[in-house]
Nucleic acid binder design. Structure first.
Lengths: 140, 140
DNA sequence: TTATTAAATAGGAATATTCCTATTTGGAGG
DNA sequence: CCTCCAAATAGGAATATTCCTATTTAATAA
């Protein structure tokens, strides 16, 4: 998913495109690792010095709700990170180094049908596995 | 899983049993709905008026790490809730009323084998589906 | 029982995240 | 182009959660 596709998605759901929102979406593509909300703020402030942290959080949450972004909450009390969804997938997150390893398939699919039949409307989901990668395991 | 089993689990992992820790574990069984950290604090303070919120959080996190507890993070910005694990399972959480519907099977099992073979050590996981239950859906 | 030590605690500071409110603005329709 | 209004914003307050440090204590072994 690229910037334009995300913007179309936002419009399609009936939300407005503001300069701040556009800048936040742009910023998300600058990073190699999924950024924190603060890191996004720093980038966006170059164009919009007055933007508030709340606006960043609000937009990140919106993007997560419409399934353009996933919020990664490490258990080891690092602050949350936000990653653009390219192909929909989930992660194994290493508690040692924070590396997020992609899992191939989306496990939600199995449940979707059953839940829909029961009358539930699904708007999002989170699935994370916590553990240690081989390197951190060796290092102790 | 009952109180004694949890205490054994804690001991088994090499952690100490303090009066505060024991009281927190007891308290978790008082609630009908998974409580927030503050709600746990209130109960525990009846026996330990001086206990700190940090101690509650620290112990809840510990119990979650050793898989005796799951932390439920609603997306609608309600504060986190903590639920004793009886049979291991996951939830669908309604964004309207906060109801947590249990899913029968643990979806992690499919991935466990593959990850272990690759040398990963898994210590925990989280899987949550966010949406609306039939009642809230009708209510708009 | 006593000594020892790593783990746990209390309390307050620091940080992360969300809420609140007055104000601004995107975009639809005339 | 204008008008209009729901949605979005800034800024600061409120809350949730974690961190830090000096002190206490559970559990082990002598």
């Amino acid at each position: 998913m690229n910037q334009l596709e995300i913007i179309d998605m936002v419009k399609g759901k009936g939300f407005k495109i503001t300069p701040q929102r556009r800048a936040i979406i742009e910023a998300l593509f600058f990073f190699e690792k999924p950024p924190t909300a603060k890191e996004v703020l720093e980038i966006v402030r170059k164009k919009h010095p007055e933007i508030s942290l709340d606006t960043v959080y609000r937009n990140l949450n919106l993007l997560a709700e419409i399934d353009c972004l996933i919020q990664i909450n490490l258990k080891n009390s690092e602050t949350s990170r936000f990653e653009i969804i390219k192909n929909h997938h989930h992660h194994l997150i290493c508690l040692g180094c924070g590396e997020a390893v992609c899992l191939e398939s989306c496990i939600l699919d199995r449940h979707m049908g059953v839940l829909r039949e029961k009358g539930y409307q699904i708007v999002g989901h989170a699935f994370e596995i916590y553990g240690y990668c081989p390197a951190c395991r060796t290092a102790g």
